[in-house]
């Protein structure tokens, strides 16, 4: 199948690029690590998390956040390809039309695995510990990678739509970043004003974070795991076709 080969060829290209520009990946990994340290040691003492140590509470949340932003590399990469004219080259080749996007998002899965290992490692060092069995932990890791994959498609769309890499960056940090904070990732939603609590409770990030906690810490899951999976699939179902549509119409800037 050409579509599969094309995807792998372009995923390899993205990964080679990360190896050549390791600062890209370091940047996206150092930031969440810094957040872990800030939250655990600076804010942690002031945040009440009934029934859980703050490190246990925080780590699943901050990992979800880092997975969500793992796809940023895709937005920046696609914006760059558009600017440099590489997109023209790809679009003039007799290759699968979707491979430029599927290759990027697949490469994100690999870099998300690296991030996940770093984050769990740092988490264990600051006092996080798993409270569930191997099956749940593996399921949790797969769910986190699925969440990361879903948001790679959001970022693909942003990268193909924003007028530049800088604009993509600004959008990510002014819209998505606050959304990850108005959730159960860093504080219990019950501690928020009641109107905000409603927003946070229904924020898909909250479902995803709660699902990760359930699978890592054995907290009550409710429907959160299934909702997190559904949300991720729904995001792919919406943003993959949107991105493909933008790609077909993409014009060099």
């Amino acid at each position: 199948m050409n579509a599969v080969t094309d995807t792998l060829v372009l995923a390899k290209r993205s990964l080679l690029r990360i190896r050549r520009q390791p600062d890209l990946l370091v940047g996206f990994t150092v930031q969440p690590v810094m957040f872990v340290l800030l939250f655990v040691y600076v804010f942690g003492g002031a945040i009440e998390t009934p029934g859980l140590e703050y490190a246990d509470f925080l780590i699943p949340g901050i990992i979800v956040q880092s997975m969500v932003f793992g796809g940023f590399v895709t937005a920046l990469g696609l914006a760059d390809d558009l600017k440099k004219g590489l997109m023209d080259r790809f679009r003039s080749l007799p290759m699968s039309r979707s491979a430029v996007l599927t290759g990027r998002t697949l490469a994100d899965v690999f870099s998300n695995v690296v991030q996940l290992v770093v984050m769990i490692g740092v988490g264990l060092l600051v006092g996080f510990s798993f409270k569930t069995g191997v099956l749940e932990i593996v399921a949790g890791i797969l769910l986190l990678l699925l969440i990361g994959y879903a948001f790679s498609w959001v970022f693909a769309f942003i990268g193909l739509t924003a007028s530049s890499a800088e604009a993509a960056n600004a959008f990510g940090f002014t819209v998505l970043f606050p959304m990850t904070f108005v959730s159960s990732a860093f504080v219990p939603v019950e501690s928020m004003p009641s109107w905000l609590e409603v927003v946070a409770e229904n924020n898909p990030f909250t479902k995803m974070v709660n699902a990760a906690r359930a699978l890592f810490l054995d907290t009550p899951a409710g429907n959160d795991v299934w909702l997190a999976v559904l949300w991720s699939l729904a995001i792919v179902a919406v943003f993959a076709p949107l991105s493909a549509w933008r790609y077909r119409r993409a014009i060099r800037r």
């Binding site: 094309d6 060829v9 390899k12 290209r13 690029r17 440099k84 004219g85 080259r89 290759m95 060099r252």
Partner: peptide, 27 residues
């Protein structure tokens, strides 16, 4: 084949890797 004033090659790959990638995409 298309080539042009914008020299659409990937700066983060080597010359060889660029050509190899295009060859693979031509199957």
């Amino acid at each position: 084949g298309l080539a042009g004033q914008y020299a659409a090659v990937d700066e983060n790959l080597s010359g060889f890797e660029n050509l190899e990638m295009v060859g693979r995409l031509y199957h």
